[in-house]
């Protein structure tokens, strides 16, 4: 990690280390005492990065990034919310145990500096089981799940690609006034919002105190988006199909003439 950091000529390093006997994210400046650096705990560095960037000024930052961090950073950079020119990635390949714990299908960063890539299953048992259910069983299942939601917003605040300061789900426009549980629409609206950017990091599901299988929902919607538009979140180039014309044109900067 140190070698990669040196090579990247960054001013800061975002990683995790042991703090007071626990693991915590840390932002190191050049020359800081690194302490006991840790890569064995899946912190969503992209999410933390978004929060520290406003305080960095012109400093360049290196981030220890797993594949999901990398994709989230790409999604945010594409939207102009991060400046990819100032960010270097120290690619961290997750180990088999981590991959299986995250039910990750895409664990290998585009450039690996730490660890070795392991194979991942493209399918997810939880998703397969849910899709095997009949429509009425699904409704029964998800109604029960959504009823558990206590609207803590853990899923939104831990999401690396959820970027709004104020969430419209905090208002009563689309969800009933009564409050908790927030009704059937809450997690579906979130699904639509994440449809063109979710990187399947699983933070929402990990954060959920009610154990709602949100990662499975994300994976199912991502699959729909891929089927409908051939679009997969996580690259820094492709404009979201939900924003473009049927020819894939956006009004901005696209002078392609047919």
């Amino acid at each position: 990690m140190r070698i990669a950091f040196e090579e990247m000529k960054a001013d800061r390093l975002l990683t995790a280390r042991t703090e007071h006997g626990n693991v915590a994210p840390v932002l190191l400046a050049r020359g800081d005492e690194p302490g006991e650096l840790r890569t064995d705990v899946p912190y969503q560095m992209a999410n933390i990065l978004l929060r520290v960037v406003p305080y960095l000024g012109s400093d360049k930052i290196a981030v220890v990034a797993r594949r999901c961090d990398e994709k989230a950073i790409a999604e945010m950079s594409k939207r102009g919310l991060l400046d990819s020119g100032k960010i270097s990635l120290i690619g961290l390949a997750c180990d088999a145990e981590q991959v299986s714990e995250c039910r990750c299908s895409d664990p290998c960063p585009s450039k690996v500096h730490i660890g070795e890539c392991v194979k991942a299953s493209p399918t997810d048992k939880v998703v397969e089981d849910l899709l095997a259910k009949s429509i009425s069983e699904r409704l029964e299942f998800w109604t029960a799940q959504f009823r558990k939601c206590n609207k803590c917003f853990g899923c939104t605040s831990n999401c690396p690609v959820c970027f709004c300061d104020e969430c419209l789900l905090e208002e009563k426009t689309f969800t009933p006034e009564k409050g908790i549980p927030p009704g059937f629409a809450f997690h579906l609206i979130r699904s639509i919002h994440l449809a063109d950017k979710c990187v399947e990091c699983g933070e929402c599901e990990r954060a959920c105190p009610a154990d709602i299988p949100l990662l499975a929902l994300r994976k199912m919607v991502n699959r729909d988006v891929k089927e409908l538009f051939g679009f997969v979140s996580g690259d820094g180039e492709t404009t979201s199909p939900l924003l473009t014309t049927l020819d894939g044109d956006s009004m901005e900067g696209d002078n392609d003439v047919c």
Partner: peptide, 21 residues
């Protein structure tokens, strides 16, 4: 502007190029 996260969704989808960040 208090709510806007400047994600640019509106900029890209506007058929008239009428929005900027």
């Amino acid at each position: 502007p208090e709510k806007c996260a400047a994600c640019g969704n509106c900029v890209i989808s506007c058929p008239y190029d009428a929005i900027e960040i």
